[in-house]
Write a protein that binds this DNA or RNA. Structure first.
Ligand code: SF4
Ligand code: SF4
Lengths: 142, 142
DNA sequence: TCGTTATGCAATTCACGAAAGCAGAAGAAT
DNA sequence: ATTCTTCTGCTTTCGTGAATTGCATAACGA
């Protein structure tokens, strides 16, 4: 059970936008360099985020990405789901037919509890929250 | 972020021992067949469990594995850590030197909260608990 | 019209999870 | 003693999916 790079980069990326304060349109090149993320990989991630309505893209000179909403309205969960789809620890959780044992498996029951806790934590924290944490530590954009 | 097969098989394996009621010495072949787990893979997992003192091994004819303690004294967390070492969602959590940004990263802070929740859930459930859940559903050993 | 930046796929690389293999040690049964 | 069983401790292989790169194209601003 491990947090993936895509998830990490995605969060760090939007957090960079938050740190810049809301609506500034920022090119991937800037984010990638500032946070040391492979640019093409970040592009892929941000395309998902754009499709999901977390960010909006602007092409051309002085284009880039910007948040579509107030950071306080975007939960970490939303970002994670945009990046890698519905969140599940095990296939059998969303798909009971995946295993012919789902209805009497205690492990599955436990993991559903665990997953619920996970989701609740990710849903109860918004980008604005994380932004404030950073701010309190004196993090600068560049 | 995904639960691994090794983790799943490990829990299912010890749960089989619990279902057999405590101290019965059971060969891997039986567990592997009953729960449809690749036997050699399970062997590797159980070797870790044995090293960690979760189970004890007996060689020779009518040998196999048995729990060392009462299921009520073995937490799910203990089993998971025996299988895959210290539990962390991201390298930078146990090892602050992994990234030169650990002291001002809000994502890391959040993941530490998440991880704490995870660990607490896994620690607050024992094998006996899971065994009872199964029992309540009428799960039989074979 | 030119340079910049995102878009959409394809292709590639790479790490690690997952699984299999095998020689050997330990032990029980006979 | 011998034999059969079962774990032990590697080594090796396999496969999937993560992680990364590449490229041709579209949109857009200057
Ligand atoms: S055995 Fe249990 S945990 Fe594993 S796939 Fe089936 S239901 Fe899920
Ligand atoms: S950027 Fe943050 S989350 Fe990523 S490795 Fe560094 S401290 Fe950990």
């Amino acid at each position: 059970m491990q947090f993936t790079k895509a998830e990490e980069y995605g969060i760090l990326g939007v957090l960079y936008l938050v740190a810049k304060g809301g609506t500034a349109v920022t090119p991937l090149s800037e984010i990638a360099e500032a946070r040391e993320i492979p640019e093409k990989f970040l592009a892929k991630i941000f395309q998902s985020l754009a499709r999901f309505g977390i960010v909006r893209s602007y092409r051309g000179v002085r284009g880039g990405f910007a948040l579509t909403r107030n950071p306080a309205e975007i939960t970490v969960m939303a970002v994670l789901e945009a990046i890698q789809g519905p969140y599940h620890l095990l296939r059998c959780i969303p798909d009971p037919d995946h295993c012919d044992n789902t209805d009497r498996c205690a492990l599955r029951d436990l993991l559903m509890v665990v997953e619920k806790g996970l989701v609740e934590t990710f849903e109860s924290h918004t980008l604005a929250d994380l932004g404030e944490w950073e701010h309190a530590k004196g993090v600068t954009v560049i």
